[in-house]
């Protein structure tokens, strides 16, 4: 190893915690949500309660997911600079240039540079993912509010019904599941790819919070 590497505490506990809650929720929501959309298990007796359990798990996971989003949003205000929501926003000339650099880098068109926090492209991806998450929450509660009248459901998603038809809401709620799954595949691959290239301990950092950054890259 040519450069000395420093151990940098990057992802604080709430960031890692919500990451893994999100992981579990997306897993549970995708499996149960797919079943609700296309019941792939055949019940052999009317005493079974498969759809009932699937929906129950889906709703509980949905609440956990919403809480996780709220915790993460709160931490983006009070956490360290890598947790800040401003890391996601690409709306400066310099950030946009870094997004372009990152894309080139992943396409083997330029050499890599290490980052302590998110890359600019990563930040932009999380911004879009966050918007998808928000849509899934609102559309989910919109569908839930069909059979649950009450102010809370109206606020959490019922209002969407006045903009979109229920069948359209259901379709996009379903389609965005695939968007999230595609994200998850790319996310894991790029994390592994970057880690094996830059040796920053990225894969471990989401468990421990620490990244290993070369001295020359520390300022970034």
């Amino acid at each position: 190893m040519k450069y000395e590497r420093g151990r940098v505490y990057t992802w604080e506990f709430p960031v890692r915690f919500t990451h893994w809650i999100n992981f579990l929720c997306v897993l549970a929501l995708s499996v149960t949500g797919y079943y609700v959309g296309r019941p792939f298990i055949h019940a052999y007796s009317s005493t079974q309660y498969i759809m009932g359990w699937m929906r129950f798990i889906h709703f509980v996971a949905a609440y956990a997911f919403l809480m996780s989003i709220i915790i993460r949003l709160y931490w983006s205000l009070v956490g360290n600079k890598h947790a800040c929501i401003c890391e996601w926003l690409p709306f400066t000339g310099e950030k946009l240039k870094r997004v372009a650099d990152d894309i080139k880098c992943y396409l083997f068109l330029s050499k890599s540079s290490c980052h302590v926090g998110h890359t600019a492209l990563g930040g932009l991806t999380y911004l879009l993912l966050f918007l998808v998450f928000l849509f899934e929450v609102f559309s989910g509660f919109a569908l839930y509010s069909v059979n649950h009248s009450g102010v809370i459901w109206a606020l959490l998603g019922g209002w969407l019904k006045s903009i979109m038809e229920l069948s359209t809401i259901r379709l996009y709620h379903h389609l965005f599941m695939y968007v999230i799954l595609v994200f998850a595949m790319v996310h894991v691959y790029i994390a592994w790819f970057s880690d094996s290239r830059d040796k920053t301990g990225l894969m471990g950092s989401i468990f421990t919070g620490y990244k290993f950054i070369a001295e020359k890259d520390m300022k970034q």
């Binding site: 959309g37 083997f108 389609l175 695939y178 595949m185 691959y189």
Partner: peptide, 30 residues
């Protein structure tokens, strides 16, 4: 929707595979 979703997932997997192969054949630069 499900056909499109499965297509998206397959396209992503293929894309990642190609990228991985690309990485495997051009590691020397790094």
């Amino acid at each position: 929707a499900d056909k499109i979703g499965a297509g998206l997932a397959a396209a992503t997997a293929a894309g990642l595979l190609v990228h991985g192969i690309g990485r495997a054949i051009s590691p020397k630069k790094d």
